[in-house]
Simulated assay, not measured.
Amino acid sequence: MNKKLIRRGLIASGLINIGAVLILSRGFTNTAINEADPVVMSNFGLLMIMVWGLAFLGASTIPSNIKWLAGAFAVEKLVYTITWIRWISENSLTQIYATDIFAGVFYSVYGLNDFLFMCFFVWVYLYYSKTKNN
């Protein structure tokens, strides 16, 4: 049961990374996302978020211990969560929504999404830490 949940969580994380970027960036044409955070959320940055999504999908096919991979994923999600907290504390969501609703949704949810999946990846790391075959 736990391994099935882990697989589904990895797939969900991958699909959300890829799908949310493609939809909310309107296929990399939504400049409001780029302008609100030109360093982290440039089109290159958005592409790298999708690459992480591919890594999560790839990890979902590994039938054995992914302890250290899950640990790396948790750190990646921690970095994005901290980046989002800093961004949200220094910027106005109201202004982003006024510019573009898709960009507003993106900046409203990306950090919460990363925080939840960070918790998931920590749980996966701990799950495999308790198994016999580390």
Rank of each mutant, 00 (worst) to 15 (best):
T61K: 11
S60W: 02
I85D: 11
T94D: 14
W52Y: 13
T81N: 03
A55E: 03
I11F: 01
G9I: 01
F28E: 06
E90W: 06
S64L: 15
L93Y: 07
Y80G: 10
L10I: 05
L78T: 09
T31R: 14
W84V: 09
F56L: 05
V21T: 12
I88S: 13
A20T: 09
A74Q: 11
G9W: 00
F73N: 08
I85R: 10
V75Y: 13
I18P: 12
R26S: 11
I82P: 02
E76S: 11
A36M: 05
L69Y: 11
V51I: 15
V21E: 02
D100G: 04
S42L: 06
M41R: 06
A98H: 11
G104A: 00
G58I: 02
G14V: 03
L54R: 01
G9H: 01
F44Q: 14
L10P: 04
I101N: 12
T94W: 10
I88F: 11
T31Y: 10
V40S: 14
L78H: 01
I16G: 00
I85E: 05
I66P: 09
L69V: 15
S89Q: 07
F44T: 12
V40D: 06
A32K: 03
I33Q: 06
G14D: 00
I33N: 13
T61Q: 09
L46P: 04
A70W: 02
N17R: 02
Q95G: 14
T29V: 10
I18G: 05
I88K: 12
L69E: 10
T31C: 08
I23E: 06
N43K: 03
N30Q: 05
N65M: 10
V79G: 01
N34C: 12
V39A: 14
L93V: 06
I6W: 03
S25N: 15
T99C: 02
V39P: 06
S42I: 13
M41S: 04
F106L: 12
Y97S: 09
L54T: 05
L47A: 15
K67Y: 03
L22T: 06
G27H: 07
R7Q: 13
F106V: 03
I49W: 12
G53R: 11
T99A: 15
P63N: 13
V21K: 12
Y97N: 05
V21H: 12
A32I: 08
W52P: 01
A103G: 09
L5H: 00
L54P: 01
I88R: 08
S13Q: 12
W87A: 07
N43E: 09
V79Y: 12
R8H: 01
E35W: 04
S60Q: 03
T99W: 07
V79E: 08
V79I: 15
L46H: 05
I88Q: 10
R7F: 02
Y80V: 02
S89K: 01
Y80D: 01
W52D: 02
F106E: 06
M50N: 01
Q95K: 14
L46D: 07
G27S: 12
G19N: 07
G53L: 06
F73A: 15
I101Q: 14
P63A: 15
I85F: 14
S89Y: 07
A32R: 11
L69H: 02
A103S: 15
W52C: 07
L46N: 11
D100H: 05
N34P: 04
V105E: 05
Q95N: 11
G9E: 02
S89F: 11
W87S: 13
I18M: 13
V79N: 08
V79A: 15
M41P: 09
A59G: 05
S92P: 08
G45E: 10
I66F: 00
W87D: 07
